[in-house]
Design a protein around this nucleic acid. Structure first.
Lengths: 133, 133
DNA sequence: CTGCATCCTACTCGATACTG
DNA sequence: CAGTATCGAGTAGGATGCAG
């Protein structure tokens, strides 16, 4: 895949949205969050994502400097992803966005999901890395 | 235009991104910001947007409850847009995203633009409603 | 002035099967 | 396990012209 030409941008907000907007990217970032997670973990977390799309989004996030891919020379293959500092600093902002949506569009948010996402709004970093485990 | 079916969502963050992601929506929200602005003002602010797309995005933002459209019975037609409370509450979050992008991707951000966007990061609400005036 | 109608392109997203 | 190949659908975004 040829890397899409970025910019020129007219506003920092435009830059941010070009990096993290889309159906899956923000969810993938939340899914990785504070841990090192494997491809299959993310796949299980976002159950309806296709492997093709997940792979594509991970590559895009990696090339944008939001996540790091680490491959170990083991059989079977083991690959882990974790957030860069930029990615980590994004987490509280995503939390703010989630709080904002919860406040103004509560009808859109299933109750069972709210609880699982709560740690992103409180800053807690418990070890269940995915909200629907 | 038939209203697109929303959800079901699994996370508040997903809701937020469904409402504000895309090439133009965040910029339009910033463009409106704290004032009542007219269609032609937004058009001038986002010089490269086509009228069709601007109209489409404004409708989407209105149906999502982020902006309010007010039409006056004048000739020539006068229409003003302003943010709802939900839209206003989004501004500081967009500011955080802008600051985040400025911190980690400074190369992507033209210097001349930074200054014009600054008020969104400091909370200033001066009366030049658009950053490239 | 403020859009809408039409036609079009390009990119995002996806289902399924298959591979190192 | 961690992806890639292939084919394809849907949608965001765009150019141009026209209307109330």
């Amino acid at each position: 895949m040829a890397v899409k030409e970025k910019g020129p941008y007219r506003c920092p907000v435009e830059v941010a949205f070009d990096f993290i907007s889309g159906k899956w990217k923000s969810l993938i970032i939340l899914c990785i969050a504070y841990d090192k997670v494997r491809y299959s973990d993310i796949k299980a977390c976002l159950s309806t994502i296709s492997p093709h799309i997940l792979s594509h989004q991970l590559k895009s996030l990696e090339s944008d400097g939001l996540i790091v891919r680490t491959q170990y020379g083991e059989i079977p293959l083991r690959v882990e992803y974790h957030l860069t500092e930029a990615g980590l600093k994004l987490l509280p902002i995503l939390g703010s966005l989630g709080s904002w949506a919860s406040a103004y569009y509560p009808d859109q948010i299933p109750h069972s999901t709210l609880q699982n996402c709560r740690r992103f709004f409180s800053g807690d970093s418990s070890d269940d890395f995915c909200w629907n485990h």
